[in-house]
Simulated assay, not measured.
Amino acid sequence: MDVTELTERIRANDPDLGLRAVGALHRLAEQVEAVSVALAREQGWTWEQIGDALGMSRQSVHAKYGK
């Protein structure tokens, strides 16, 4: 689904479509975040640097991805 189609679905006044789009965006954002955190760690970033970039505490980021 491209951005235009997503925008049209959101504007369709159908809460089912809008909520499904939100769910899909959340899942995509989680995937991008996980890949980016892993890449940052591979490149030597600290948990504090990653937390700052995400607007989270280093403890929260480490708890989520430190395993």
Score class of each variant (00 low, 15 high):
V3N: 11
L6P: 00
Q31A: 14
L28M: 13
Q59N: 13
A12E: 04
E33R: 10
W47V: 03
S57H: 12
D2F: 07
G51F: 10
G23C: 08
V3A: 12
A38I: 03
H62R: 14
L19P: 00
H26W: 15
I10A: 08
S36C: 07
S36P: 02
E5N: 07
R41G: 05
L28W: 06
M56I: 02
G66D: 02
S60N: 14
G18Y: 03
W45Y: 09
E5A: 13
L39R: 11
W47P: 01
G51H: 09
E48Y: 08
L19H: 07
I50Y: 00
L28F: 14
L17Q: 08
P15S: 02
T46S: 09
A21E: 10
L54W: 01
L54M: 09
E5Q: 15
G18F: 05
V3R: 14
G18I: 03
K67G: 13
E48G: 06
R58C: 11
D14N: 04
D16Q: 08
E48C: 02
Q59T: 12
W45D: 06
L17C: 02
A53V: 08
A53W: 06
P15K: 02
V22E: 03
A21D: 13
V35L: 14
H62V: 00
L39M: 14
D14R: 02
G18C: 08
Q43Y: 13
Y65R: 04
W47C: 04
A24W: 06
R41N: 03
M1F: 03
H26E: 15
A40Y: 05
E48R: 15
G51M: 00
D14A: 03
A63V: 03
E30Q: 15
Y65P: 01
L54Q: 06
E8P: 03
E33H: 09
T46I: 11
W45F: 02
L19M: 14
A29F: 10
R58L: 01
L25H: 06
I50A: 08
T4G: 08
V61Q: 02
G23S: 09
A53R: 12
W45L: 08
G23A: 07
D16M: 00
R9S: 10
R58I: 01
L28S: 12
L19F: 11
V3K: 14
L6V: 04
G44S: 04
G23E: 09
D16A: 10
K64A: 09
E42S: 15
R27F: 09
A53I: 01
A34E: 15
H62C: 10
G18A: 14
K67A: 10
R20V: 02
D52W: 05
T4H: 07
G18V: 02
V61Y: 01
Q43H: 09
R27M: 12
L39I: 04
R27T: 14
D16R: 07
W45H: 07
H26M: 14
E42F: 08
A34P: 01
G18K: 05
E33G: 07
V37M: 10
P15M: 08
L25F: 05
Q43A: 13
